[in-house]
């Protein structure tokens, strides 16, 4: 394993100290327990938004703390969900009395730990709503399974709900908006290479030189299907095709197209994917009216890409365009 770290046990702590040093005006960092929160928290009268999940997906979630997005983020160990004590302390630190929204990605660990934290916060008199994001079409949904994973839609939900909270909307409305984003967004990802969890020291799975994995998660979980590497245009057809086949987005819709790097795929390839996605959607009568291109929800150094499409209306478009000022995403501010 080759990584720029000092000690495998200190990866998350060292990163948090770096974030604090780099962004002292935007965020504060708690090292015991771990959480990142807005430097001006709690913001009076505003609904607070807390998210969290395993580390290794940077800039999500810690990089999205700041004006117009998250009030706090709880990083777990690499690819391991954070624990209830972190979520509880983060919730308390940013709660202004207007209520707190927990945005949770649908992984059993994240869901169970956030459930425990929400129960504890409610015991302390804080109003908490939780919304679980599950947008990954690679996973067959069923009542009897853990359901779909939360992936790219999480980034979009955090941005859009953050804007709504900034406008002073009440907790129930911000939570409804979060569900609306989740209902109208679909994602699918693929990997060209595996990734190495520092504490594990070797790649999570093996992929041959000429192979790719379709329907990958963001934790190096193997995907649905392994096949020979194909061209960017063919990969786009598989991913975006599966998203459209899911039935939520179709001809006549305006969408936000989010082309995300899994960490190791450079921008030059993301733009090629974007070009092919643009063509593909045009052919299917779908119009891209907003886009987001870059590494936003990553899987350490994995090479690969995910595509998320969010069906937009005027409200979602306006909230997407609203100012945001965080280490990982900023415009209009």
């Amino acid at each position: 394993m080759k990584k720029l770290i000092n000690n495998v046990d200190d990866v998350v702590r060292d990163e948090l100290e770096g974030i604090q040093l780099a962004h002292p005006h935007d965020v504060k960092v708690s090292l015991d327990p771990y959480y990142i929160y807005r430097a001006d928290a709690p913001v009076q009268g505003k609904v607070a938004i807390v998210s969290g999940g395993g580390s290794g997906h940077e800039p999500m979630h810690g990089g999205f703390v700041g004006m117009g997005m998250l009030d706090a983020a709880c990083p777990g160990e690499v690819f391991t969900s954070p624990t209830p004590d972190q979520m509880l302390e983060a919730t308390k630190a940013v709660s202004s009395g207007a209520g707190v929204l927990h945005i949770v990605k649908n992984y059993t660990g994240d869901v169970l730990n956030f459930e425990m934290a929400a129960d504890m916060a409610r015991d302390e008199g804080i109003e908490v709503e939780s919304v679980v994001i599950d947008d990954d079409v690679a996973v067959q949904d069923s009542l009897y399974t853990a359901g779909r994973r939360g992936v790219g839609a999480t980034v979009l939900a955090e941005k859009i709900c953050g804007a709504a909270a900034e406008e002073g909307r009440p907790l129930s409305e911000v939570a409804d908006l979060c569900r609306k984003v989740n209902d109208n967004a679909r994602s699918m990802g693929m990997a060209l290479t595996s990734c190495t969890v520092p504490a594990a020291g070797k790649p999570t799975f093996e992929l041959g030189e000429d192979e790719m994995e379709i329907g990958i998660g963001i934790h190096g979980e193997p995907g649905r299907e392994r096949m020979k590497v194909k061209s960017a245009a063919e990969v786009v057809e598989i991913l975006a095709g599966a998203i459209l086949d899911d039935g939520v987005i179709g001809s006549g819709d305006n969408v936000l197209a989010f082309v995300n790097s899994m960490g190791g795929t450079p921008l030059i390839e993301l733009y090629i994917v974007y070009r092919d996605l643009h063509r593909f959607l045009e052919g299917r009568g779908v119009t891209i009216t907003r886009n987001l291109i870059g590494p936003y929800i990553t899987s350490l150094e994995m090479q690969g890409v995910s595509i998320t499409l969010l069906k937009l209306d005027d409200e979602l478009t306006r909230l997407w365009d609203a100012p945001v000022k965080t280490p990982g995403m900023r415009w209009g501010a």
């Binding site: 777990g76 954070p82 624990t83 059993t108 730990n113």
Partner: peptide, 10 residues
């Protein structure tokens, strides 16, 4: 609960 994280912790 405080240290494991993941599904197995809770």
């Amino acid at each position: 609960i405080g240290k494991v994280g993941g599904a197995s912790g809770p």
